[in-house]
Nucleic acid binder design. Structure first.
Lengths: 352, 352
DNA sequence: TTGTAGGCGTTATCAG
DNA sequence: CTGATAACGCCTACAA
């Protein structure tokens, strides 16, 4: 069966059908210029009848816009990300923008390749959730005037628009909770060394410990990389390191899972012998089998805030007008989304 | 600081800089026509020096392509999807295509709105992973000649390109496993009623039971909707329905989790008193605390296959040539990605 | 082998 | 209030 394709109807057909010029059709449909109401309705009617839909390709070429933004993240299949993606996408959808998702696997080369590619596509803006904190590309974006927002990872040297969660506050709330339960020897499993969020979470641990007059002992702090596996390593470390803490705060849920498994295997009951907490509240943590006390970042809102900030930035760049020879010079903005401690079954008062 | 934006360098600048016509630059850079090697290198050199990158907007308008495909799914934050998305994105990336992700929340109106929107964007193709199995829009896409692939959900009446997993085979393998362990009374929790995949999984259950000469009793089959909550309901149903099965096969992991929780709460040990299996092998299922025997669909490959099929379809449409007045007429293709039974701790031999 | 010209589908400008 | 015109940046016949 060889179906004949009705070629896409263009503005020209509408102009013909309604007996006006193409430019008039454009105005009538956009509704932003004086058009006699009478002709306006005629045009609209013709457009409707013909099923006319403006080509966003042509319009984009003319207007130098694409109504699309790109998202660079490490890996969508990492359960930390989907909620953020969802939040971003929801907001973009409400503004008729599209989201292009790019997985970089934490690889700088892939990230750079994507960035080049996306710039060719003339996306209106970028959300950077994976970029290394010392990336040169970010500098270039900045110079170039491309609107972008950093998500959860700050750049080391440049100040940019940033949206992140209250990492410090989340951990502080965790420590306060543990302290109230009588815990004094509290260990910490750090996240990826190159992540500013991990750094902030550790900072929260240190400041809260200090605030409660508790000492931070080296053997009670160990480095992880956010993976389940590294959580297992961390637990093993604690088991070897002499007197066990009564509670362990992990910089994310995954590592907490790993640690829980090891302790359970070693016959150390959670939470009776040792309390464990996480960070991220990925959905698994709520399952009765896990039931992890953790910090909920409100990832959707995080994503939505990032998207919103980006769109504002895009709008203001457009307003200033690149063609005017200047870029948006307003101050970089910083948005911190609050976090919430979710108390579940892996923490309990310290047993004597 | 008002940085002056260097406007994007166009083909014109390159032409000027290398002293040739724009068309020559185009040819030299595309490498698909005769250009004297000497001038070719000169052009390439100039392009490199100026940092020229062709505008894909302009090229797209000219070529009527966007090198982008859209993905309609219910919700990225449903753990079933991210791996699929990842598989799609990986393959697209390798072919320099972009992926636009759209969440429809199973809502027909949102789906239709997205479809309209994406068609305006003139995407090269679509992957439909959320469309209701009786959607009219799918018919329209078909008529219109827009390349698309259905993922995991078949359309009721129209035959289209389809990529899915071996749902039947997965469940059959599960039943065989349980049968080998001595189970004879095997219950089943069905998935969403409007999902063809759910239908196939149930079909696998029935055919395998029959093959082993086991009877399918109504009270041992209950309807769920893929949610954890509905798994709890299902378990409650089994508890009320008289003699408990010795094993329960769930149409997905979530419902298995829900059921496990209820049985544990009711003092019915898993797997000692009752074996439970799932389907999807979302990452949680591998955690020692869950350790669910389940069917692994290889979601990444599923996504990759869908993307690959779509790109082939796009290429063949291009070859036939829409402007030639015909569409791609080759037969719809069907790809079934194999599934694999992962035996873990929630199944054991039946206790006498 | 290279250049000229036209058009992809819009919208903004400016004259009428 | 409406229409002609040009331009966004690229590619491809076709002519030279």
């Amino acid at each position: 069966m060889s179906v004949v394709i009705r070629p896409k109807v263009t503005i020209r057909e509408v102009a013909l059908a309604s007996g006006v010029a193409r430019s008039t059709v454009s105005k009538a449909l956009a509704g932003k210029a004086y058009v006699r109401p009478e002709t306006k309705t005629r045009v609209i009617e013709a457009a409707r009848r013909l099923g006319y839909r403006a080509s966003s390709l042509a319009r984009g070429l003319r207007l130098q816009q694409t109504w699309s933004v790109g998202l660079l993240l490490a890996d969508v299949s990492n359960p930390f990300f989907p909620d953020i993606v969802r939040g971003i996408e929801d907001l973009l959808w409400s503004r008729e923008f599209n989201l292009i998702v790019c997985n970089t696997d934490y690889r700088k080369d892939k990230e750079a390749a994507y960035l080049r590619h996306l710039l060719d596509r003339q996306l209106d803006g970028l959300i950077l959730a994976s970029t290394a904190s010392d990336s040169d590309e970010v500098l270039q974006l900045q110079e170039q005037g491309t609107p972008f927002v950093m998500l959860n990872r700050r750049h080391k040297s440049v100040s940019t628009d940033y949206v992140g969660m209250d990492n410090e506050g989340g951990v502080r709330a965790t420590i306060a909770h543990l302290h109230a339960l009588g815990h004094r020897r509290i260990g910490f499993i750090k996240g990826r060394a190159d992540s500013s969020a991990a750094e902030e979470r550790f900072q929260g641990y240190r400041s809260a410990m200090r605030a409660f007059g508790l000492s931070v002992e080296d053997r009670h702090v160990t480095q992880g990389d956010y993976s389940i596996e590294s959580g297992r390593d961390a637990a093993a470390h604690f088991l070897r390191a002499g007197e066990l803490p009564t509670a362990i705060v992990s910089a994310n849920d995954f590592m907490a899972f790993g640690a829980m498994g090891v302790f359970a295997g070693a016959g150390i009951a959670v939470p009776d012998r040792i309390s464990i907490t996480g960070f991220d509240d990925i959905f698994v943590s709520a399952l009765p089998e896990i039931d992890l006390t953790t910090v909920r970042p409100n990832s959707r809102q995080l994503g939505a805030s990032a998207a919103e900030l980006l769109l504002e930035r895009i709008a203001s760049v457009g307003a200033t007008g690149i063609e005017a020879g200047g870029i948006d010079t307003s101050e970089p903005r910083d948005i911190i989304v609050p976090t919430e401690l979710i108390v579940r079954g892996t923490t309990t008062s310290v047993q004597q």
